[in-house]
């Protein structure tokens, strides 16, 4: 079976006044059709840039190397192939619903233009399809919304519009980059529920990016943990929650509040800072913050190794 998305040795660097900062470092991953994968990691670990590279949306000063294949077709090197699928078969929504819609265009126009461009339908027909899609993402009074401007909608509504927009051409893969981070907690849960519903309905693949394991946990079948531009662990969600192998994953899990933790106790948070991007590492990037780090960790960088259920990159993993 051809994976829907196959990333091979993808590196993304940013050129800043002559120096190259590596944001994503030799990352590989495969996504089966209609699989839901969660990507977690601290801020700055390269989650966003990895998929920006896939979408061809990197900043001007960025350099991407490696290969990204979508439905078997190379889209990192071949921009024409990317143009054919971007926004139709391969869609992405972003972390900032409040600023991600064009302020001076009505919602109806912003939705319809996708269909007009990709499917060549008339504006009239496009608006009709858009209307039904708004209904499908449970936006109340969808007819009225078509004539409204983004600032007339709440943050949650705007994210629903973004989701509707991404679904218009029936994508086979949706990349959702922290779709709930900017929203209220109750709205967050609703958006996650909506993503779950539309994923089933459209039988599409979903990449759910978040820095919060708890957000990803309920939805993703498989979870990838990123640290300092690399994948440090990858495992089926249940397995990862039950038996984290990488100490970083274990530490992240300890930060999730549970119903059993005593009220009013402070949640543990991860001590220390992630390494500055661009630091050349002949060591495990996590070693300075790792309770299990030994001499070898500061000398030799651990490679991803296959484990029973997934992969991890650690010399001294947590025991099963």
């Amino acid at each position: 079976m051809i994976p829907i998305l196959q990333i091979e040795a993808l590196s993304v660097g940013f050129l800043n006044s002559g120096a190259m900062n590596q944001a994503v470092d030799q990352v590989s991953l495969r996504l089966a059709p209609s699989e839901c994968v969660g990507i977690v990691g601290e801020s700055g670990s390269g989650k966003t840039q990895m998929f920006m590279a896939a979408m061809g949306l990197l900043a001007k000063n960025a350099v991407a190397r490696g290969s990204v294949r979508f439905e078997g077709q190379e889209i990192l090197a071949q921009k024409s192939a990317l143009r054919r699928v971007r926004g139709s078969k391969l869609a992405m929504i972003f972390q900032d619903p409040l600023t991600s819609l064009t302020p001076h265009l009505k919602i109806g126009v912003q939705l319809a233009e996708v269909l007009v461009h990709h499917n060549g339908v008339s504006w009239h027909e496009a608006r009709y399809i858009a209307l039904r899609m708004l209904d499908q993402v449970q936006i109340p009074e969808p007819k009225r919304r078509l004539h409204e401007y983004p600032h007339e909608l709440s943050g949650g509504m705007r994210q629903r519009v973004m989701i509707a927009m991404s679904l218009l051409c029936r994508p086979s893969l949706l990349i959702a980059d922290e779709p709930t981070t900017a929203l209220d907690v109750t709205v967050q849960a609703q958006i996650i529920e909506l993503l779950r519903a539309v994923r089933e309905e459209f039988a599409m693949g979903l990449v759910l990016i978040s820095h919060d394991l708890a957000v990803v946990g309920g939805l993703a079948q498989r979870i990838l943990v990123m640290y300092a531009g690399r994948i440090v662990e990858s495992a089926p969600a249940e397995e990862l929650f039950r038996h984290p192998r990488h100490p970083y994953t274990a530490a992240l899990l300890k930060c999730i509040p549970s119903v059993f933790s005593a009220p009013r106790t402070r949640l543990p948070s991860l001590a220390g800072q992630p390494p500055r991007i661009g630091e050349k590492l002949d060591a495990c990037a996590f070693a300075p913050r790792c309770p299990r780090a030994a001499e070898r960790c500061r000398r030799e960088r651990p490679q991803l190794q296959v484990a029973a259920a997934g992969e991890f990159a650690c010399h001294y993993p947590e025991e099963l």
Partner: peptide
């Protein structure tokens, strides 16, 4: 550099649009 321009490109619209 605005977010909504990023969205417009992500939608696959041609640069002129």
């Amino acid at each position: 550099g605005a977010h909504f321009i990023r969205t417009a490109f992500a939608k696959g619209l041609p640069a002129s649009t």
